[in-house]
């Protein structure tokens, strides 16, 4: 609901979320799928080095999503 409202205001926004059907249901247009509800930005079972890499790549995907044209609600996996 917040993401939709932000986009409505003309502010480009990317939604990083794990529950992608929910994000699509509430009208987010650019969605990056995260690792989990309680651990969105990396896999807590990975090594600290791998975790660091995971969140770097995930943010990278969010940046790419901002820069990708979409026609409808789209999930970037």
């Amino acid at each position: 609901m917040m993401v939709k409202e932000i986009e409505k205001s003309g502010m480009p926004v990317v939604h990083m979320a794990n529950m992608t059907p929910v994000a699509q249901g509430i009208g987010s247009n650019r969605i990056v799928k995260t690792y989990g509800i309680s651990f969105p930005m990396f896999d807590p079972n990975a090594t600290p080095e791998a975790q660091k890499q995971q969140r770097y790549e995930l943010v990278g995907r969010a940046l790419k999503a901002l820069n990708t044209p979409v026609q409808e609600s789209t999930v970037f996996e």
Binding site: S9, P12, V13, V14, M16, P40, M41, V59, L66
Partner: peptide, 28 residues
């Protein structure tokens, strides 16, 4: 829902004061 919409507007207004041009929103 009403609170979420209001807070989204408030946050957008606040970050615009600092010339923010895009938002990454992370949810759980």
């Amino acid at each position: 829902k009403g609170d979420a919409v209001r807070m989204a507007r408030e946050i957008v207004a606040k970050v615009r004061e600092d010339a923010v041009q895009a938002i990454i929103l992370g949810s759980t």
